[in-house]
Design a protein around this nucleic acid. Sequence first.
DNA 1: TAAGCTAGTGATTAATTACTTACTAGTCAT
DNA 2: ATGACTAGTAAGTAATTAATCACTAGCTTA
Lengths: 200, 200
Amino acid sequence: MEISTKHLPADERRALTIEAVIELAGLQNPSKITTSAIAKQMNLTQGALFRHFSTKEALWQAVMEWVKDRLLARIDQAAHNIQSPLAAMEAIFMSHIEFVIEHPGVPRMLFGELQQAEPTPAKRVAHSLVQRYIERICACIEQGKAIKEISLDVDTRSAATFFLGTVQGLVMQSLLTGDIQRIRIEAPGVFILYRRGIRG
Amino acid sequence: MEISTKHLPADERRALTIEAVIELAGLQNPSKITTSAIAKQMNLTQGALFRHFSTKEALWQAVMEWVKDRLLARIDQAAHNIQSPLAAMEAIFMSHIEFVIEHPGVPRMLFGELQQAEPTPAKRVAHSLVQRYIERICACIEQGKAIKEISLDVDTRSAATFFLGTVQGLVMQSLLTGDIQRIRIEAPGVFILYRRGIRG
DNA sequence: TAAGCTAGTGATTAATTACTTACTAGTCAT
DNA sequence: ATGACTAGTAAGTAATTAATCACTAGCTTA
């Protein structure tokens, strides 16, 4: 239909810009994405971007907020209405993996942003995303302990960090093989190992 | 004694340059380290660097080679003379953690380099480092299976990826807290979880 | 001590980058 | 249709970056 229309309303253009950044982040080092590259990706001139985002930093912040909202919503929905904490964690794990497969640039941006020396606005958002994510995993683990599904001598916080590290490890693997789809196949096996590690 | 001597022999200067890069990588996003910043870190003019490295890319390759040699040597030595495969893996894990604490820039550079779109020389080296690392972990796991220390229904490759991911997760945690030392405290607990996951 | 080489300086360069601006095309309400 | 507003263009700017170069200080050896 309307492929590559010029003159879009501002909010649509903003949304498209964010998507363009996330797509590019899947193809190259996120911290090397230039405003020219973003503009090119969406058939726009470079200057036009600054009509919608006052600075590049503001754009990155918007991107991280998009990521935060979507990812947290996704895992919340995945865990919704699942009684068993362990089963909820498995659902969160798998939905996170699906999210990463859809948007391979996301974990790369997250990690890159957390590395930033100065506390940029985007880093702040990334930080709060990870913290909230870990809080939710911690809550599952505590519930699991309460009903003896999870071993009491597991350190909750360590196990939650470990959970996220597992995803990160799968992402690293995909960077090595260059094949993102593979992590969908490997993920269940890796989650089994994780579950055996914390089970009561 | 000889603090900040000028006019060093070329190989000493090369070594100091590599160390300067690794130190800076612990403080800021590795892909944003400029040649000026490196020179400043070692009290040298920017142009002088190019007497020792033909391009910045060549410098990065040298850095990754330094990392590869040191890290592989470290884990090999850690596993040396340990009979039990599981104990060897624990020794490798802990020595890797110690290495990361000494050089927090290293895992950040590794991950960043693997993200590079074009296959730069540095990326090639990073790639081979990770592959060799994983091969060694795979070998331990296979040995462990042979003597029933490790469960036979564990997928060797997944478990090896998982091993590295665990380290990566701890690094991520340190980026969040800003405290590298903390991972030394958390590491043993996390390894216990890992071991429980694969134990026979 | 003088010659010869090595390593460092400091100024310069071309390319790239985020951002600006003067102008213009497209859209929509009246 | 017209006018007002919105979004896009294209050219430009200042700052930063990797790399170069002419020159020089300082070891080393004869």
